[in-house]
Write a protein that binds this DNA or RNA. Structure first.
Lengths: 237, 237
DNA sequence: ATTTGGACGGTATCAGTGATACTGGCAGTG
DNA sequence: CACTGCCAGTATCACTGATACCGTCCAAAT
């Protein structure tokens, strides 16, 4: 394999060329073809240069993941509709799954091995999108579970759906798997009806005020004070 | 590392020793420590012997997977209760998940990379258990979806649950993730009505929690304490 | 404009990996 | 005893990730 002649350009440019070369190799020939030499050759760079820009093969792969994820998000510009938070949840889940289906090798890299834990930048970026949607669900009274649990549920269903889908032979894949996973996620995460009518703190406070007698987590005196605060919040809006 | 002196024994015995040595290395030091030399040394065998018994490193790993899976199933002797097929479905799912949690490295090997598709023997063995339960569900009229889709759903939820669980730092793992995934799987697969919990105070609390930054009626310290209470109420449901 | 410092790229090379060719002895068979 | 076929063991291959070393070139300082 001859070296591509593409010298010149600043430091950042070399870095970008290496990342793109690695991404290309990963997408076209799989993880095991992404070797230092192959990447270096494809990027028109000497192998040791990789270690100067990224300290490590692992860091290069992480950079590739981040690059791929950012590129995907840039292509779709993701804008949640202002009206329907549950539909936005669906759209967010679909987005995460679509990323996996379009970038199987990259997805396997990011979410295949558990050891590449939640610390990765791309992982965090993906999670952040979900967190926003979850908060909007919560504000509208749709959230059935804890926010952290909701995030974990959404991620886990998407992860299982994508990896299972990719494991199946193409002629055995059933799109119903994806929609069924998504809908069961929606059922797990959201209420059938919003627990709050309007929006804003006042209506949420009114809803909680009404449901307060059913609660068991707080002591009597705590409940007393909470009630007063909820009254003030209810009157605020 | 010195060679273990454990010569002798028939051909099958050597094969078993190699598999056990590889399993041990995998469980204790992770995938990257399972090299031909390390395995050979630990098993008291020369590296080329591995290629005579298994044609390939990949085949060795597959044998390790099968071995580990069989061992796990033998430890629990899995006997479905004759009466309640839905409860058996839960137990089967729990079993699959428990295998993953107890053998993280092995699980990552089997279900981490999508390319190691559905052809693996251990994969098929695991699926076969589920198929049996699904058939019994169908016979009892509980099955909501196609049998194939049911199998895919059960597998995908378990896969996502395990890999997500293993990706989380130990101090952030919430067992509720596993039960929530399981129950949402049950809802998706069976006709059983979910034990719907009415909108308690928890959802309203979460709504108020999310809207709290927008509120102006309470002081900073009051808001602080209110936030803590809302967290407790949110977790109550 | 000259000097000087240091950062960068290129060559050569290391240790360790999966995998294999070849030989020598060992068993079992006649 | 001779023969044959199989298998363990040695040596080695091509390739991987990673690094030491050196020369050059650019840029800042004087």
């Amino acid at each position: 394999m001859e070296t591509v002649d593409a010298t010149g350009g600043g430091r950042e440019l070399v870095r970008q060329r290496v990342i793109e070369a690695a991404s290309d190799l990963l997408a076209r020939e799989g993880r095991e073809s992404v070797t230092t030499r192959a990447v270096a050759s494809a990027a028109g760079v000497q192998p040791p240069a990789i270690y100067r820009h990224f300290g490590d093969m692992d860091e290069l792969l992480e950079a590739v993941a981040e690059h791929g994820y950012a590129k995907f998000l840039a292509a779709k510009q993701v804008v949640p509709a202002p009206s329907d938070p549950v539909e936005d949840l669906r759209a967010g889940w679909d987005l995460a799954v679509e990323f996996g289906l379009e970038n199987p090798a990259l997805y396997a890299l990011m979410y295949g091995e558990p050891r590449r834990g939640t610390s990765s930048a791309a992982f965090q970026a993906g999670m952040q999108i979900l967190i926003g949607r979850i908060r909007r669900l919560a504000a509208a009274g749709w959230l059935r579970v804890d926010e952290r649990l909701a995030a974990a549920l959404i991620h886990a269903t998407a992860r299982g759906a994508v990896l299972t889908w990719l494991s199946q032979p193409e002629d055995q894949r059933d799109p119903a798997l994806l929609t069924a996973m998504r809908e069961s996620m929606v059922v797990a995460v959201t209420n059938e009806k919003p627990a709050v009518q309007g929006d804003g703190p006042a209506s949420a406070a009114r809803a909680l005020r009404a449901a307060l007698p059913d609660q068991t987590a707080l002591s009597a005196s705590e409940t007393q004070l909470l009630g007063e605060w909820l009254d003030r919040l209810s009157a605020d809006g």
